[in-house]
Amino acid sequence: MKYKNIVFDFGNVIGRFDGKAILSEFCPYEEELDDLSEIVYKRWAELDAGTLDYDSYINEVIDQVPEHLKDCIRRFAKEWPRCTTLLPDTITFIHKLKERNIPIYLLSNAPTYFAEYYEGSELLSHFDGILFSGPIRLAKPSPEIYSHFLRKFDLKAEECFFIDDLEPNINAAKEAGMGGLVFTGDINEVKKAIGF
Rank of each mutant, 00 (worst) to 15 (best):
M1V: 13
K2L: 13
Y3S: 05
N5D: 09
F10T: 01
I14G: 00
G19D: 10
A21R: 14
C27V: 14
P28F: 10
Y29H: 15
Y29N: 12
E31P: 07
E31K: 15
E31H: 14
L33K: 07
D34G: 08
D34P: 05
E38N: 14
R43C: 07
R43L: 13
E46M: 14
L47R: 01
L47C: 03
A49L: 10
G50E: 10
G50Y: 01
T51L: 12
L52D: 08
L52G: 06
D55S: 14
D55R: 11
D55I: 12
S56Q: 13
N59I: 00
E60G: 03
V65T: 04
V65N: 01
V65E: 00
P66N: 10
H68T: 08
K70S: 06
D71W: 06
R74C: 08
R82L: 12
T84I: 14
T84Y: 11
T85G: 07
L86I: 08
L86D: 10
D89C: 09
D89I: 03
T92W: 11
T92N: 14
I94P: 01
H95W: 09
K96F: 08
L97R: 05
L97G: 05
R100I: 08
N101V: 10
A110F: 00
P111E: 02
T112N: 10
Y118R: 04
G120E: 07
S121L: 09
E122W: 10
E122I: 12
S125M: 11
D128I: 05
G129C: 05
P135I: 01
P135V: 02
P135M: 02
R137I: 05
L138P: 01
S142K: 08
S142E: 15
E144Q: 14
Y146L: 03
S147L: 11
F149W: 06
F149M: 03
L150G: 00
L150C: 01
R151V: 02
F153K: 01
K156D: 13
E158T: 13
C160S: 05
I163S: 01
I163V: 13
D165R: 03
E167I: 09
P168C: 06
P168F: 05
N169I: 04
A172N: 02
A173F: 03
A173T: 06
G177L: 05
G177I: 06
G177R: 04
G177V: 05
G179F: 03
G180Y: 02
L181T: 09
L181S: 09
T184H: 13
T184F: 07
V190D: 03
V190C: 09
A193K: 14
I194A: 08
G195A: 06
